[in-house]
């Protein structure tokens, strides 16, 4: 078997790193800056833009299929973190559209057409999902197998850094959105 020991100096270094990380995480010390405020504003803007764009797109989809919005919820998705939790978020939305009958694979083409009508570049990704993109926004709709419904999710990949002291405020979307 290969050796696995390590010298006492290296081991000590690991222990010290552990202590430093632990204390840093415990105290949450990290310098603040005006940049953080700008990032937080960016996150709020991203949220507003996502909600506005997706509402318009889903209005077109629900009218065209037709379908009914069963629920929607906003998410602050962790995209950056440290040992104590999230320090950066990207905003996204997900939810469900109910239909009269279960969609088949063939129905995805029609759905892609509706997304195109809504101003998205749309493509059928596989036998379950249609993806639409508009600038940096992506909207995906996946059909369920045995239920008359599509699950949808949408948002941008842009990640906004939020200071550790403010990150907890974004653990959930405390001002729930309702699309459509």
């Amino acid at each position: 078997m290969m050796g696995r020991g390590s010298g006492p100096v290296v081991r000590l270094a690991v222990v010290l790193v552990g202590v430093i990380l632990g204390v840093v995480a415990m105290t949450g010390c990290r310098p603040g800056s005006g940049e953080e405020e700008a990032q937080e504003q960016g996150l709020r803007d991203s949220r507003d833009q996502t909600v506005t764009e997706l509402t318009a797109a889903l209005d077109t989809v629900t009218a065209g299929l037709p379908a009914q919005l069963r629920f929607s919820q906003g998410n602050y998705d962790t995209c950056r973190s440290d040992l104590r939790g999230a320090t950066g978020y990207a905003y996204s939305v997900n939810g469900r559209l109910d239909l009269a009958v279960a969609p088949t694979r063939a129905d995805l083409t029609r759905l892609a057409g509706l997304l195109t009508q809504a101003g998205f570049e749309a493509e059928v990704v596989d036998e379950a999902t249609v993806r639409g993109t508009k600038d940096d926004l992506t909207l995906r709709l996946s059909r369920l197998d045995q239920e008359p419904a599509y699950l949808f999710s949408g948002g941008t990949d842009e990640c906004f850094g939020i200071g550790r002291d403010r990150a907890g405020d974004y653990s959930v979307d405390k001002d729930p959105i309702q699309l459509g």
Binding site: V14, G18, G22, M26
Partner: peptide, 12 residues
Amino acid sequence: APSGLDSGRVGF
């Protein structure tokens, strides 16, 4: 788990 002031236990 190793945490806070006893984070040094992470090496063991």
